[in-house]
Design a protein around this nucleic acid. Structure first.
Length: 432
RNA sequence: GUGAGCGUAGCUCAGAUGGUCAGAGCACCAGGUUGUGGCCCUGGUGGUCGGGGGUUCGAGUCCCCUCGCUCACCCCA
């Protein structure tokens, strides 16, 4: 460590340094491109909301609400919370602006930071970024499948191959009570053998026991009744519809009889995209239906389906699979002056070039020509304009093509036009 | 919150049993080309060895405490 570093990024957060940003641009670019193809419109909501929005929608007794929210009070004494999830704010906005009145089906997507106060580890941060999509208004299983297809398309476009789709159904308020009853009966006999955590879950949220990773609990629940076996007629029909359409689109999936989502608002379809390269936190994205949430939050009863995906995790998986195509940004022109007169001229030249739409940079360290050439090379400049004393005397400069290692003299009066032409031609071939 | 591992130059890391152990590679800067990049050669800047205390004639190297990071449990994106 250098000296003693007094200030650090808060635990569980990290700086995205310039080197890393091209990866993010690429990721966001692919997300926006695919969202457009599927006709989802971007929506941006505040990064904090009234606390109750989250506790009501996510569920009072979930891990997120119980211990992971960044909650604070503003000066008026209102309880606010940094969003741990993207869906509740979108739904709130949908209701608040009566967006459902405009069109019966609304398709949104968002990209942005989320906050959860957990112990950080691989693929888990306190401030992390998600992109997500929500389709509000359609009950058709085809809608669920479009959603899944969208997430998979994005993954595919990013080059991810070692991924798998897990599919399940968590039923609805009509079928869950029966399943719960059967599950409790099934587990009742071996209650004392369950881990302490699962014993708590037994009383509060028995579904989660199916999700326990302890070997013994897994064994005990091996043959436990799955919600899937207790779906009411409508839910069963819907689930069949989803599977049918997945088959139709030739989307492979693993039926996950114990897929449990950590958020209370999910109904029916639940899905997850898992990466084989991520370690313990292996879910790249997950989502499902939330047909009760809009009503729950005060809107008209409206069916909806959505997903959220973790961007840091996707980047991690991309790194592991070697599909990062990071190309550092480059500039069109580097201006390298020699001498005071040339330096003054360089400042104006840079302004003119920028006005002409040419990205460029110059020297502000009064470095040697050699050092400036090195900088030009590192910045990936296509051309370097060398403002030498001799040439300046004759109102001429040297323009060096860095890729072709050739240079020629150009008159000052036609310099900008010359560079525009050169870079314009180049632009048709590759990136500037 | 619990457990384990790790903290030596900007980065990646060497430094057996405590005594030239304060190093290498990369990066950065300069020179080799008194006006020219990428390769190469030479040289250089840079570290109170996370912090504090202790043991010792002497501690990156042992002990204690502390902070931080990482991974795992848990939970999830």
């Amino acid at each position: 460590m250098a000296k003693s570093i007094k200030y650090r990024a808060p635990r569980g957060t990290h700086d995205r340094l310039p080197d890393e940003m091209s990866l993010w641009y690429h990721l966001e670019g692919v997300v926006r491109e695919q969202m457009r193809l599927y006709n989802y419109s971007e929506i941006a909501t505040p990064t904090f909301e009234g606390t109750e929005l989250f506790s009501r929608s996510i569920g009072e007794e979930t891990e997120i609400v119980e211990k992971q929210m960044y909650t604070f009070f503003d000066k008026a004494g209102r309880s606010l919370t940094l969003r741990p999830e993207g869906t509740p704010p979108v739904v709130r906005s949908y209701i608040e602006h009566s967006l459902g009145r405009r069109q019966p089906l609304q398709k949104f997507f968002y990209i942005g930071p989320m906050y959860r106060q957990e112990a950080p580890q691989a693929g888990r941060l306190r401030q992390f970024h998600q992109f997500g999509a929500e389709a509000i208004g359609a009950i058709d299983p085809a809608m669920d499948v479009e959603m899944i297809s969208l997430l998979l398309s994005i993954c595919r476009r990013l080059g991810l191959k070692a991924i798998a789709l897990h599919l399940g159904s968590v039923g609805c308020p009509r079928c869950r009570p029966l399943h719960r009853e059967k599950l409790l009966a099934f587990l009742g006999g071996s209650y004392s053998l369950l881990c302490p955590d699962c014993q708590k879950r037994y009383h509060r949220n028995p579904l989660r026991i199916l999700d326990c990773k302890r070997e013994r609990c897994r064994e005990l629940t091996e043959d436990a009744p799955s919600v899937i076996d207790f779906l009411c007629e409508d839910c069963a029909l819907h689930f069949e519809g989803v599977k049918h359409h997945l088959q139709q689109l030739e989307i492979a999936y693993t039926l996950d009889r114990r897929l449990v989502r950590g958020l209370d608002y999910y109904t029916r379809t639940a899905f997850e995209v898992i990466s084989a390269n991520l370690g313990a936190q292996n879910a790249i994205g997950g989502g499902g239906r939330y047909d009760e949430l809009i009503k729950e939050l005060g809107g008209d009863p409206t069916p909806a389906v959505g997903f959220a995906a973790g961007m840091e995790r996707i980047l991690l998986a991309m790194e592991k699979e070697g599909c990062q195509i990071a190309q550092p940004p480059t500039i069109g022109v580097y201006v390298a002056p020699v001498g005071d007169r040339a330096r003054a001229f360089a400042l104006s030249l840079l302004k003119d070039l920028r006005q002409a739409g040419i990205s460029c940079d110059g020297d502000y360290l009064k470095r040697s020509l050699k050092a400036q050439m090195r900088m030009a090379d590192r910045m990936g400049a296509s051309y370097t304009v060398i403002l030498g004393e001799e040439e300046m005397d004759r109102n001429r400069v040297l323009v060096r093509g860095m890729r072709e290692s050739k240079q020629e003299e150009v008159g000052l009066d036609r310099l900008v036009g010359y560079l525009i032409e050169k870079l314009g031609v180049r632009r048709q071939g590759q990136t500037v």
